[in-house]
Amino acid sequence: MTVSADQALDLYRVMATIRVFETTAGSLFAAGELPGFIHLSSGQEAVAAGVCSVLRRDDALTTTHRGHGHCIAKGGKVFGMLAELYGRAAGYGKGRSGSMHIADSSAGILGANAIVGGGLPMALGAAWSAQVRGEDRVAVAFFGDGAVAEGVFHETLNLAALWRLPLVLVCENNRVAEMTPSSVHLATTRVADFAGPYAIPGATVDGNDVLVVRDAAATAVARARAGEGPTLLECETHRIRGHFEGDPLRYRSAEETAAWAARDPLVLFRARLAELGVPSARVEAVDTEVAAEVRDAAAAAAAAAPAPVSSLLDDVRPGVS
């Protein structure tokens, strides 16, 4: 799949927005501004940007506790997300659910999810509804290697394959679930191997190369849209930060950190942009714009009204608030 300079710069903008968003969120968390838990996806931006670049707005997505990047790449608004992280009434969930629960019906974001594996069946359902309604929407489920050991992963694969659903299962394999390496929690080394038993295509790709991810996702999405069924796409990547902000990362060696720093997806893609002939001034302009966008959104979120106690019962049942 060829990429024009403008398309490449758009991909870069998405990745840079995710990086700045999360760096900002990390600093705000460290400063005690954000309550609760946050899990950053820094280092995994190429997966979110690459996959979502081949999706339409009406395609559906489910993601995980580490889902900021997917939401941004799918069209989620940085202000609504930051306001949610701050617990502001203007946040996506009215500021009551937090970082792990961003949903946006106008962008097809069915929801991030604090339950490992929890989003897989929902994405399957979104794919099923497209099939029943005769629409050419597809659904994508993002999940980590940890979710592969959950029963719903296997149930979802079986059912998606059986019904030939327009579903793309994207595993971000960062080789660790919380503090436990995949060698301790998975029977295979390659997650894509699980495609075989369910007789669907599986692929393992470099998840830090956004163009490689984009190509693989384009193939899977085209297949799904054409009614040919699901694909399991494994993207090998690395989370730079700890499992959660505040994680002392005792399980990570300095060598590993250094090796992956050289493969930082933003660093790799900046070099690629130069090869594609994108002038560095344009890249820097994107950096400046993105930094300003996130800074302004964060300031606006900080200044926004906190979720009021009167909203405790809102949206518990439809029509009742």
Binding site: L110, L120, A123
Partner: peptide, 21 residues
């Protein structure tokens, strides 16, 4: 007819209910 996958069929109903069914 579905497989014997209670969690997944209930979750599929949920995802479908959020997208038009």
């Amino acid at each position: 007819d579905t497989p014997i996958s209670e969690a997944t069929i209930v979750g599929a109903a949920l995802g479908a209910s959020m997208t038009g069914l």
